[in-house]
Design a protein around this nucleic acid. Structure first.
Lengths: 402, 402
DNA sequence: ACGAATAAGTCAAGCAATTTGACTTAATAA
DNA sequence: TTATTAAGTCAAATTGCTTGACTTATTCGT
């Protein structure tokens, strides 16, 4: 009769958790608002002046915030604004894409301090891991030389890879990524560097980047569509990145569009993979973006056709995202620099009417985010910072676990 | 130069919040697991034995939990399990649908204690409000007579209406609901009853019901598709109901399906409204479900055709929901009793392959939830209980606001 | 030029709630 | 019969927010 069914329960909280949360709330407020006085912070967070003072004192002693010049504004004692210290923390981002790996180092505010690229040897995650570790070591050495004693301030390594994770798909273009996924890369990286390592899909990384330094700055309900070699969406719901039950939420590339009898995944029409296939660009070619830009600028018919079809499908995808997530805005980000994405944006407009309010909006329904090969790497690097410094439910609780 | 841009910040937390959270965590654990000892609770929540003991003591003195008989299991002192007391709290649910209003009273555990129905006079929310208030008063009187001194234990009134909210839609079938929405019903109810009143859309209410006593019990990532007169989805993401930026998240009825050139909203094919239009049933007819059941049982061709088309679209909708939300399961609930929904379920299967894992699942990808005209009313009533007793991020924070 | 008003920020005691570690109680296993 | 194991209590310690009085610095009004 001794049923051994595990007991399911949420985690409790204690003072330590509230304190940690309040710390994060202050850091978040400073990131979103730039510089604030203790009194401002107290009003904005609902904490007492005293509680804020204590926290600011700690944060200042840790080198995470610093005061600026006194500000006189009307009657009363002048206030002392505080601001995040850029080099209060660093993080490393590692993007493993289908044809290239990128490593980047950013600071607490999102400034890029170092970066490096390597081509991933195909058909062998083992070899690839070596390459990636070398790359990391190189960047770290370079970074450490420029900023001595900053090593201790590295919050961790964020890894971003194309999703979905843990799914067996009969799509030949994905086999390489699956090999990477089944390879214990995270453990290897953690062992090889001594840092905390976390994994997310590339679209989620991009959303994190947009939230920290981009078009989603300060917003709490955002769908960030990322057009990379594939296509996916990063979800910020209620102020937190949402990953779903298995970390695969937002895999918009697999959403089926088109006729009821022959639905095709969005990814087949609106990914860079599909564009490259049409214009015969090798995705492993380092000069790919220059070549593409030339085609775009010269008005290549195939590019125009791709834009048309992708825009058509994306218009529907934006509508679906608005309908299901009811976000403040939808962001269109991409790994492709240059004029392709602005043109794609223009082709998507005008949007279909949806339940998204149109009157009196402060933010447009659709905004262009980063168009940068480094977007995902930046987001990957932003992830350890987000984990360490952003307010979140799980950060209050005793037993962590996102 | 005095920029008056408002400062944006999240809310801080304090001890009161942690304590409130821990209370909720314990209630939640008891709801999900049935009965647990203090030691069990301590292990499951991560709190210390002592903290749990203190909380249990309070909860017991408030009449929210009660001890059961000692349990001897192996060595050591026997444990005293505690269980939620059903009549520790009550809540009132009010569903305002297009042709009918329903009021229901439930207890903390979800038992139904009283209910009543009224036809809503069309074309006049003012009159309707009177009817609804009368209905409420009647039910409350009846309830109070049966359970004296329970009045003080009513957690509030949950109101559920078809969404979307705050949107101007040029759809003649919705004008009545819009009139209701623009009418200050909540204030009127609060003033007329002296209770806290909250509003949500019907699909969200249904999801709340499924989570409290139905197919989503104990799950934290669920999409609950509700087939009512219209169709919508209630979203439970990360253990909390998700409403989006404007409370309209999950309006799956407005998702466009079908050919790229003539996309039609899901609602046009997979709502009971569309079925009734095909089989000439009056949605205001009290005998509607009996009539429909007869048609279903006798194998009416029109019903079969509706099932076919609805199942086709729903198969796609389930796929989209799985792809975008990555839930543990999708639930199909409905206001229609009888054999229609089981048949619709059967027609939807087999599901399209998606990124939702298939191997080693404990829960099926798609489950049938409630098929009950009272489903939404039950969920509406569950909402005040959820607000008062379920753990949530906002419940920890100083300044509430979901 | 001066006092009143206003606002930022500090000080020190108070308080609420969890934690800690020792202790008591009650059962089973050897 | 005794050792072991586990539930639960007791009381002091600790943490971190709150409270209310106080200090400091500036502008406004006369």
């Amino acid at each position: 009769m001794n049923e051994q069914r595990p007991i399911r329960a949420k985690s409790g909280a204690n003072q330590e958790g509230t304190s940690a949360h309040n710390r994060r709330v202050i850091i978040d407020a400073l990131r979103v608002n730039g510089a604030l006085s203790r009194a401002d912070l107290a009003r904005a967070t609902g904490l007492t002046k005293q509680a804020v003072s204590n926290l600011i004192e700690t944060l200042e002693s840790e080198g995470l915030v610093a005061s600026e010049d006194l500000v006189r504004k009307g009657r009363g004692q002048p206030s002392t604004p505080y601001r995040l210290v850029a080099n209060g923390a660093y993080a490393i981002g590692l993007q493993i894409d289908r044809h290239v790996s990128r490593v980047i180092v950013v600071d607490l505010v999102g400034n890029i301090l170092a970066r490096a690229t390597a081509r991933v040897p195909p058909r062998s995650p083992e070899e690839g891991a070596e390459v990636v570790l070398d790359l990391l070591a190189g960047v770290r050495t370079e970074f450490s030389a420029r900023r001595p004693d900053a090593e201790a301030r590295i919050a961790g390594i964020g890894v971003a890879m194309p999703g979905p994770f843990g799914v067996e798909i009969a799509d030949d273009s994905l086999w390489l990524m699956q090999a990477w996924q089944s390879f214990p890369l995270l453990d290897r990286l953690a062992a090889g560097t001594g840092l905390a390592v976390s994994l997310q899909n590339d679209a989620a990384a991009c959303a994190t980047a947009e939230r920290m330094v981009g078009a989603a700055h300060g917003l709490d309900h955002v769908v960030c569509i990322y057009v990379g070699y594939g296509i996916g969406a990063g979800l910020i719901l209620g102020g937190e990145l949402y990953g779903g039950a298995n970390g695969n939420a937002g895999e918009i590339g697999m959403v089926l569009l088109g006729g009821p009898d022959d639905p095709t995944p969005l990814e087949h029409r609106a990914s860079i993979a599909s564009l490259y296939a049409m214009v015969d660009i090798d995705p492993a070619d380092p000069g790919q973006f220059a070549k593409l830009e030339t085609l775009v600028q010269t008005g290549d018919r195939r590019v125009a056709a791709w834009i048309d079809r992708a825009a058509h499908d994306l218009r529907l995808a934006v509508h679906t995202a608005e309908t299901l997530f009811d976000p403040q805005t939808v962001i269109l980000s991409s790994s492709v620099p240059g004029s392709l994405m602005p043109r794609l944006m223009a082709a998507i407009e005008p949007l279909r009417p949806s339940l998204s309010p149109t009157a009196g909006r402060a933010i447009p329904r659709l905004r262009l985010g980063m168009t940068d090969p480094w977007a995902v790497a930046i987001g990957a690097a932003a992830d350890p910072i987000r984990r360490a410094f952003d307010p979140s439910f799980s950060a209050i609780l005793k037993r962590q676990g996102e």
